[in-house]
Each structure stands twice: as C-alpha cells, then as structure tokens.
Nucleic acid binder design. Structure first.
Length: 416
RNA sequence: CGGGGCAUGGUGUAACGGUAACAUUUACGAUUCGGGUUCGUAAGACUCUGGGUUCAAAUCCCAGUGCCCCGACCA
C-alpha cells in the first residue's frame, strides 16, 4: 500500500506511561493504540502482523486435523455452572455483565465449557472421534494488574484448540502431533531457536502440562533449560525430584527468564464428566471423551517478537510476520524518480510481494527513520542516485550495508 | 488484592504559593534534499475530577479517578 494513504503516523517518543519495549515501539510505529490499561486496539499495520501470525497458526492447526470454527463471545452462565467455574469465588477475574431481563452472561473467559457443550450435540459414537476443533477469539480477563504492554492484557486474542479423543492413547498421539505443530509455528514466526518446550504443572490426568517458553528478559516466568535436549522446566514445579524424574542434570540447567507463548494441556475427563460428554464404543458401551487443550496468545506472541528482535532504531520483523515484505522508499519527487518508483511498486505488487510504498514528500532522513522504526525486512530505495545507475538500492533491516541491484535482480531477492 | 509512585497542549518535558514555558507535532512561507536540515509566522492547555487551606494554588491538604512499578494472582 501507499504510505500516503496510511492514516497512522510514527512518533518520536512513546507515551510516558508505557514502559515495556514492545508497547513503546508498537505505539511509536502506529501499530497499536492504547485504549486503557491492558487494552489495545490494533491499527492497520498491527492487524497485518496479527493476521500473518493467525494464518501461520491456522495452517499448522489444519495440517494436524484442526477444524476452525467460532464460538460466541457472550458466554452462558448455566453452562459454566455445570463445570462449577461461574462463581467469583472459583474464578475471580471474570468479566460479567447483565441482560436486560436481569440474567447474567460472561465475556468469553476460556473455551472448554463452550466446546464441551457444543460437541455434546454432535458426538455420540466412536465413529465421531477424534475431532480437533479450534478458534481464534477475543478473551477477556479482569486481571488485577495487567502489565508489560500487549503481553498481558485484560483483553487479548488467542487461538484455542480442543482435542476430543476416544481414550488416553488416542489423545497422546494427537498431543505429540500438537507439539510438532507448535514447534513449526514458533519456527515460522522466527522465535524457534529461543523457544523451549517446558514442563509445567499438570492436573488430575497428567503429571505435566507443556508450555512453550521463549527466552527473553521481558519474560515473567523463570525456567530451567537443558540446552542439549532443548527442553526446560518451569520454576513452579522445579525441584530435585522432578529434575531426576525427567532424567535431567541439575548442573546442566540454566536459569532464564522466559515468556509463555503457548501451552498444551491434558484435560482428560475434567470437562466431559460434568457435561456428560460420552460416546458409544464398538460394544455399545458409554465412554467419556478424553480431552486436551492447546492455546497460543497471538498478541503476546507479537509482543515477544518485538521484544526479541528490536534494536535501538526500532522494530525488526521476521519475514513471515512482517506487515509488508518490502518497504519501498522514494527520495525526491522528480518525474523520473516518481515514475521509476511507481513502476517498481507495480512490479512488486504484480509479483505478489507485500510492499509498503513511501510515496510521501518527505526528506530522506525522515523516511529512513520511519523505515527503521517500522521494521520491514527489506528496504528498497529509488532516488536520483540509484536512477543514475539504473539500479535500486536494497538493504535488509538486519544488515548494516546496502547494495545496488538491477531491478530484476532486486525483484528476485524478494520473490525467491 | 497488598505496597509504592506519577497525573501540565496530540506527544515529551519545565515552571519558589504570585496567574503556564520549551521541544516535538500540526498549518503556512522560505531554505534544504541519502540519515529526523535550517529560519520565520501561526495553531494547540479552564494544569485529571471534586472539595479544602490562602489575598492568591499547576504548586500545599483531603477524597475520588486514571496510569505505571514491586509483590500476590495468572484454568
């Protein structure tokens, strides 16, 4: 898109009340707008990042049999009473509101109840299982203290998948697949080498749950990493017995701060029981469905990426999540330069490259500063200087030097 | 939820109890044109809200609200 049509602007300074790096940079770049503590709107650029992340997750979930749907944001009190999670004494950070007739509804807090209740309508035979529905959704939590910019909000966007299996072994097979899918996701968004599958507290049906923890100083969690095996243990369960049971060596574990970017959990029959979610097996016997849950917070993931890669000049987006692959800068407004830049813009678009075209009448310094702050992976410059050589300047955000290339060459670098 | 701090143009800051200043931003005019150029003109704030003290409050006091930080919590 043409930057002249982008209504958001960059700013030199972040609001004083934002301390976290992710929110500071995202606000300065015009990616997000703070509505109130823990609540952010996603502006056009920010939305493009979220959509990219969403698409990656969608592809990976579909690849392991996930089926996308959309559950409602207003949640039914009666359903939550079945699992005994409606009461404020059990869940103290609900957002609830009243209906005109006096009834109460909740604002989507999590999805186990909704899914269990819906699946009850459709699952009755072993032939109906397993099934892996998921959705992307706004979640509301009345946090006593939200913090860290978009990392821990009162409103956030997540992906939640629930697995419904016939028994534990069928569940385990999918659980392992989900681990691989999560690994793919974190690799694709660029944080794979810093993300560790981490043993965390489980529940009635499994000793552990698994978190995907990304090492980062802005993290709220402490984990102990075994670098050799690329696994970690969350501090919340860390003790000698656990370390031993996992066949880890205490001396080899490194303590690090990390951000929980995803988690998977064996639910067992915790919800199928209260919802009476059963199926008939081959023998006609009733069996409880065996469940699991698999979550990823997209806003938190976006914030993590910013925290991890930003430098002193601004954001640095990994390729697959960047709002645009190329940031095309036009210096000067002579007919020749304008035509050349316009042509390149058209060529890039025709080649299917997402490109942000800075066609504004600003000085080079302004455009450079904006390009660095916004953080697209590749920067193209068209100016009198490049035109004189009939070339275009190409620079990667992560590299110091730029180089001059013929247009066809430059196109190749971003279409290959 | 416990503890602490802060609240002034869109943004960032300043102002002894004496009637709000600077930078940035925005608009216009010059200048400049490969790293936020320079100059001029203009716009933009009942100093968070409500009370109190005082001849006089951005400034002191009380309450509320909002925001940030530490901790607790985080299905």
């Amino acid at each position: 898109m043409r930057q002249s049509q982008l209504f958001t602007k960059t700013r030199r300074e972040a609001p004083a009340d934002e301390v976290s790096k992710n929110a500071q940079l995202l606000i300065r770049g015009g990616y997000i707008h703070k509505e109130m503590a823990g609540v952010y709107s996603y502006l056009p650029l920010g939305l493009r990042v979220i959509k990219n992340i969403e698409n990656i997750i969608r592809e990976e979930m579909n690849a392991i049999g996930g089926i996308e749907m959309k559950t409602s944001v207003l949640q039914n009190k009666e359903i939550w009473e079945k699992s005994n999670r409606w009461s404020d004494e059990v869940v103290d950070n609900w957002f609830k509101t009243k209906l005109k007739n006096g009834g109460e509804v909740g604002l989507s807090f999590t999805n186990e109840e909704a899914y269990s209740n819906i699946l009850k309508q459709f699952v009755s035979s072993y032939k109906d299982l397993p099934v892996f529905p998921y959705d992307f959704k706004e979640i509301f939590r009345n946090e006593a203290r939200s913090k860290s910019g978009i990392m821990r909000g009162r409103e956030f966007y997540w992906k939640a998948l629930y697995s419904f299996s016939k028994d534990e072994s069928e569940h385990n097979a999918f659980y392992e697949k989900s681990k691989a899918a999560y690994r793919n996701i974190f690799n694709r968004v660029g944080i794979g080498d810093k993300t560790y599958i981490t043993f965390a507290s489980g529940g009635t049906f499994s000793k552990f749950s698994h978190e995907f923890q990304t090492v980062c100083d802005a993290g709220e969690d402490i984990i102990y990493i075994d670098e050799e095996n690329k696994i970690a243990v969350n501090k919340e369960i860390y003790n000698d017995e656990i370390v031993e049971s996992l066949k880890l060596e205490k001396g080899k574990l490194a303590e690090k701060k990390a951000i929980e970017v995803g988690n998977i959990f064996t639910l067992g029959t915790k919800f199928s029981e209260p919802f009476d979610l059963k199926y008939k097996n081959e023998k006609g016997e009733d069996q409880l469905v065996f469940m699991g849950s698999y979550g990823i917070g997209l806003g938190r993931l976006m914030g993590t990426i910013v925290e991890l890669f930003a430098d002193e000049k601004g954001i640095v987006w990994p390729e697959e999540v960047a709002p645009f692959r190329v940031h095309l800068l036009r210096f000067g407004a002579s007919d020749a330069v304008t035509k050349s830049a316009d042509d390149l813009y058209d060529k890039l678009r025709k080649a299917g490259v997402a490109v942000l075209y800075d066609d504004r009448d600003l000085r080079p310094g302004d455009k450079f500063a904006d390009a660095d702050l916004l953080g697209m992976p590749v920067r193209f410059v068209v100016s009198e200087k490049t035109l004189a050589e009939n070339k275009v300047e190409v620079k990667y955000r992560t590299k110091g030097e730029s180089e001059l290339m013929l247009v066809e060459e430059a196109l190749k670098t971003v279409t290959a």
